[in-house]
Every structure is written in C-alpha cells, then in structure tokens.
Design a protein around this nucleic acid. Structure first.
Lengths: 235, 235
DNA sequence: TGCGACGGTATTGTCGACAATCTGCCCAAA
DNA sequence: TTTGGGCAGATTGTCGACAATACCGTCGCA
C-alpha cells in the first residue's frame, strides 16, 4: 500500500530493457553508483547479464528521466547534484505543484479526497515513531496523490517522469537537511482542507507556500553547511 | 537569424541517430506522418537508409520529446492531438512560463533585455505584411527568449524539451484558430516593460494572462468548430 | 624541459541476424 | 452464423560483431 508511485508499469517490467532500467535506476538512487560517475557500457552490460543494445536503451530512458547525461562519442555519466540545481527544482515544483493543487481542488472526486484524508491521518498518527525513510515515503505519497488529483495528464507526466525521480535522488543523497515533520503536517492539513472545500485559489497558495518553505529550509542548511557537497570533489 | 531554437545541437547532428531524429521529427511536425499513425521500424529504417537499431534509438528520443508513444511488443505511434490535451498544455505553460517571466525580470542581463526589445520591434514592424508561419516563428522566439532569460536550467530544459516541440506540432496541425496578432503585440509589450523595470510579480501576472487568453481563444474556436479534429477518425 | 604529433587500446556508434511476441486469417465445432 | 483455436506472416525484442571515434601514454623535436 505504501511503495506507491515508482511502478508506473502496471504489473512488472514486461521487457528486458525495463528490468535493466528499474535496476539501474535503483542503483543510482541508492548511491551504488556515485553521482557524476561514468557509466561504462561493456562493464554494466556484463554485470546485468544483458547485451549492450539493451543496456543502451535503458540508459536512454534514464537520460529522459534526467538521471544521467550523455555526450556523443564520449559516454554517459550519472548527473551531479549541486545545491543550485536543487533550488532550481524547488522553484519549478512550486509552480507546477501549485497548479496541481488548484486543479485538484477543482477536479478531484470525493473518493480521491477521502484517500487524501487517509494519507493525512496516516502521517499524523505515526508521528515520530517512524523512520526517516518511511516518513519520506508518506510525504511523497501525499504530494503524488494531489498531483494525480489534478486530472491533467500532461502535468502528471511532467512531474512524475521529469521531476520526482530527481527529487527522490536528492533526498537519498542529502539525507541531511532533514524534513520538518511538525510544520509539514500542519501545512498538509491546510492544503487538504482547501481542496476539500473546493477552494482552488487557496489550495494553490498553500501548496506554493509549503514548497517555498521547504526550499528555504534547504537553502538555509546549505549556507550553514560549509558549502561542500558530499561526492562533488571527484572529477 | 530567426530559425531559433530547434537546433539545441550546437553545430549539426554529430551522430547518425541525431540525424534520423531531426528528420523524423520534421516529418512528424510537417504532417508527412499523420498523428496517430503507426511507425513501422523496418519500413522507416529502409526509407532513411539506416539500421533498425539506429532508428529505434531515434524513436526513443522522440518518445522522450512526447512526440511518439510506445507500447511493448506492439510498436510506436505518433501522438494523437486532442483538443483536451492542447488545453492541458496551455495550463502547464501558463504556470511554467509565468515562472519564467518572473525569473527573467529578476535575472536577465541588460544585453538580454536589449535583445528582447529588438524581438518586440521586429514583431511590431513587420505587422501584417508577414506570413502566418513567419509570425509564429517571431512569436516563438519571443517566448523562448524569456524562458532563456530565467537562467533556470531545469525550467529551460522542461519547457524546450518536453513542451515546446508539442506546441509547434499543434500549431502546424491546427493552423486554424489563428493567432491574435494585435492583442498579442500589446500583451508582449506589457510583459517586456515589466521585465525591463525588474518587476517580477507583474511580469508573471502579465505572462499568465497572456497565455490564458490564448487558451481561451483556442477553446472558443474548438466549440465553434463542430467538435471534430482533422485526422482523428482513422484508427 | 616542455610541447605537440603519433600509435595502441578501450569505448562508443552502427549494423545485420536470430528469437519472442503479436496480428490477422482460416477453419472447425457448436 | 458465430465463436474459438490454431497456423502463418510480420513486427518487435535481443544479441554479438564490426567500424569509427575518443582517451592516454610515448616519443621526437624545439
């Protein structure tokens, strides 16, 4: 019931390339492959036990998910995570998820709103007796639920395909700059209330505020953090 | 000097796949391949004179540009353009380009603002003595210039890679619901003024208004248009 | 000693062939 | 006549090999 969104493929990867894609993505997100590290096609193909063609196609998918960058005749590298690009992502999220919240208030079905309430309950109940990873999962499901509630396919695809995987990536990497569980719960509650009363304007305002607060929180933890990023020194 | 944005590759395609990608994209946008049409790998590979592998990689890129959709073991089809999805795109653009305008007001260099002015001049001078295609090109350069002026790499990539090609596609297809040149020029002028005086809030408001107006214009022309889309009848 | 050309090695780009899956048609049974 | 299964053709998925390019250490020369 948790786990949520990473399985956009209905029932398991249907093709070899998909399997490799999922595994490679996990390897990147878990840090088994360092950010900025080169991706060697022959080596990885052997590791996964597939041909280079399949691996190349998987890499292409990773590239379209913004997790790796390719250069012609040179190769692919895992993206490097800079503080600046994280702040950029927050800016885009503020705009896009604000839109999602407004549309969700207008378009969500009653059943969807009910589900949103249950997610909120879950979040408030487990309180602090929960690991950081679990908290992040709950928090993520909440945001994702609202995005789905927008009923705007284009918006859903842009957020889930192009942004959320990067967000996950960052969260795994910067496990510092921890969440603000208490404040976040309050803000989530306000957002749900606005959606439930079909107040799109307010839902958008609250969501934007919520994300901007998270951005400022991250920003602050950067400046106090000596300006260095773990893993940013290797060429 | 126009032509503008479609050449994100610095100096021509460096690889075969890129060449095929560019040609295929052009073929789709020019309507040489109908929306919703199936893409046969063996046939197209022969037409382009390349192997299926290269063609497949090009198709994967098209898919990440949202111009084709693939299904495992079935094949790829050119996306179908529905009125609803066009309206969805307008919604996302309103949010994202609004953000771009605000950031542009904050971050554009004086030289960039100067360039923006020159684009505006160009648009106002040629007036009506200009073909529709040329007008669209000028209009597009204007929007793209502001997006670049945001100096937010993530935003730039999302707009240009994931949205603008679709926008072009729609414009080529629905050449009806023509532009509103006079009104658009007024709105563009206001946006530039706001940016030039570094008024981010106002720039965002104006840009959102501008795009919402275009959306309403398109919506209106749909309802008056008998509810049919050209080329939507073939399975 | 430092700089630039050269060559070997490894990696990426491209290709054609084989295997797995789907599509459409035909035929048989109810 | 209709429905279901199965066969044949075509299309997609996967693979390994060859060609082109980039990387790196060496050598020669100023």
């Amino acid at each position: 019931m948790a786990t949520s969104y990473l399985n956009s493929n209905a029932d398991g990867p249907r093709t070899l390339v998909d399997k490799v894609y999922v595994q490679l993505r996990a390897a990147i997100m878990d840090g088994d492959i360092e950010p900025g590290a080169k991706i060697s096609e022959p080596e990885l193909a052997k590791n996964f036990g597939v041909s280079r063609s399949s691996l190349r196609e998987a890499i292409a998918k990773l590239e379209s998910s913004n997790l790796v960058e390719r250069q012609a005749n040179v190769g692919a590298r895992v993206v490097t995570l800079s503080n600046e690009s994280l702040l950029e992502i927050y800016q885009v999220r503020e705009s896009l998820e604000g839109l999602a919240a407004r549309l969700a208030a207008e378009n969500m079905t009653d059943a969807e709103i009910e589900h949103l309430h249950s997610l909120l309950n879950l979040q408030s109940k487990c309180g602090k007796s929960i690991s950081r990873a679990e908290y992040k999962s709950v928090d993520f499901d909440f945001h994702y639920c609202i995005v789905l509630g927008s009923h705007n396919e284009r918006l859903i695809r842009m957020l889930s395909r192009d942004l959320f995987e990067l967000v996950h990536f960052y969260r795994k990497k910067f496990s510092g700059s921890g969440p603000r569980p208490d404040q976040a719960l309050i803000e989530h509650t306000e957002i749900v209330a606005a959606i439930a009363r079909r107040d799109g304007e307010m839902a958008e305002v609250m969501m934007r505020h919520h994300i901007r607060a998270a951005r400022e929180h991250a920003k602050k933890s950067f400046t106090s953090e000596h300006h260095t990023i773990p893993g940013s020194l290797d060429k």
